[in-house]
Amino acid sequence: MDFTFTEEQLAAAEAARGVFTGVAPDAVPSPARTTGAVAEDFDRALWDRLAHADLLSLLLGEEYGGAGLDAIALCLVLRESAKVLARVPLLESSAAAAAVQAFGGRELGERLLARAGRGELVLTVAANGRTGHDGAELAVSARREGEVWVLDGVQTGVPWAYGADLVVVPARTDATDAAVGAGRTVLALVAPGQVGAALAEQVSTSGERLGELRLESVRIAAGDVVEADGAWEWLRALLATGTCALALGLGERVLRMTSEYTGKREQFGYPVATFQAVAVQAADRYIDLRAMEATLWQAAWRIGSGAQGVLPAFGDVAVAKIWASEGVRRVVQTAQHLHGGFGADTDYPLHRYHAWAKHLELALGPAAAYEEELGDLLAAHPLA
């Protein structure tokens, strides 16, 4: 495939670099110095700047005030955001809005999407399920009662839940409910403060505030439920690919920090970067980043273009997740090693990058699980 970006995609990345200039990753208290989350809310000032730069509506069509771009453009912007650890729900809100546009119908789109593109309506996604190990769609049950849906269940680790206006919740219909389709997955738009919905605070590995969303007979109007088949699978793939973009941007910034530090730190009268053991480790991490990048753009292209080929898009997303999960861990571990004790100093931002990297690694899941699923996929689709 051709990895050359279009002018519009490059313009989005350039605009993002301008918005994120001056954003400091250590501008909020360190998790090591607080008993709870690093902050109560996401960075609203930065969110407003993203809205004014039209970066919250990249994937939306012109009828909603958007640019009509694809997943590659979003990933380019996410890559820049991770370099400064931008504390905004850019991935979740953009992906949720794109799913509503693609699968939700005109009436729902007209009510939500223009406001989401302007930053007036903040969306997030409950993608972790009850435990973080099972499918998110299995954690909440949905049943139809006339013109409303009734939801029951629990979703853990919902990002930016306390700052979002609506949470996109995947839910599974009863296996015996023939009226709405047995065992189908729908996407319900839930307001965290509505009757029957409750949040319990959780704190992520990165120190950011998450929410456990409990739903007890929550009633959602049928117009606020996306029933189209394949909507959750598409949204989940976009979220995973966007997380890979975050891992890539974070890894690139960490490797640059390591290069700058080892180029200045001297031992025996020479910069430690000139030592072969240091150079080889840094080179290995550079290779990791290039593999993360190549697999990311392949996955983003497949999602954005709808191309399927012999294997479904899941195969490319799985490969990108394998490289991102393993790669970002190796990059930050090597950075900590080459920084020595200085890397653990909470006055130096590397510790926050390490914490965010661990959060991203856990969000992506273990590489071995995707390797197994990829093997099953290849067995089911012989290439010969």
Rank of each mutant, 00 (worst) to 15 (best):
D2F: 12
F3G: 02
T6F: 05
A16E: 03
D26Y: 09
V28R: 15
P31E: 12
R33W: 10
G36R: 13
A37L: 02
V38E: 04
V38W: 02
E40T: 05
E40A: 15
F42I: 02
R44C: 05
L46Y: 01
D54C: 09
D54T: 08
S57R: 12
E62K: 12
G65N: 10
I72D: 03
A73M: 07
L74A: 05
R79Y: 09
K83D: 03
V84Y: 02
V84F: 03
L85C: 09
P89A: 04
S94Y: 03
S94V: 00
A95N: 00
Q101I: 02
E107P: 03
L113V: 01
R115T: 02
R115E: 15
A116N: 06
A127Q: 09
R130M: 09
T131S: 15
H133Y: 05
H133A: 15
D134S: 12
D134M: 05
S141M: 01
A142Q: 05
G146E: 09
W149E: 11
G157D: 13
W160R: 04
L166W: 05
A171R: 04
D177H: 01
A182I: 00
G183D: 14
T185N: 06
A188H: 06
A191E: 15
Q194P: 06
Q194F: 00
A197M: 06
A197T: 07
E201C: 05
Q202M: 10
S204A: 15
S206V: 00
R209H: 10
E212Y: 01
E216M: 07
R236M: 10
L238K: 02
L239P: 01
L239G: 02
T243Y: 06
C244A: 10
L248W: 12
E252D: 11
S259D: 13
Y261K: 06
Y270I: 13
F275I: 01
F275Y: 12
Q281M: 13
D284Y: 12
I287K: 15
I287Y: 14
R290N: 12
T295M: 07
A300H: 04
P312Y: 10
A313H: 08
D316H: 11
D316Y: 09
A324D: 05
E326G: 14
G327S: 07
V331H: 06
G341D: 14
L350I: 05
R352P: 07
Y353L: 08
W356R: 13
K358N: 12
H359S: 14
E371V: 02
E372I: 04
D376G: 03
L378D: 08
L378W: 14
A380I: 02
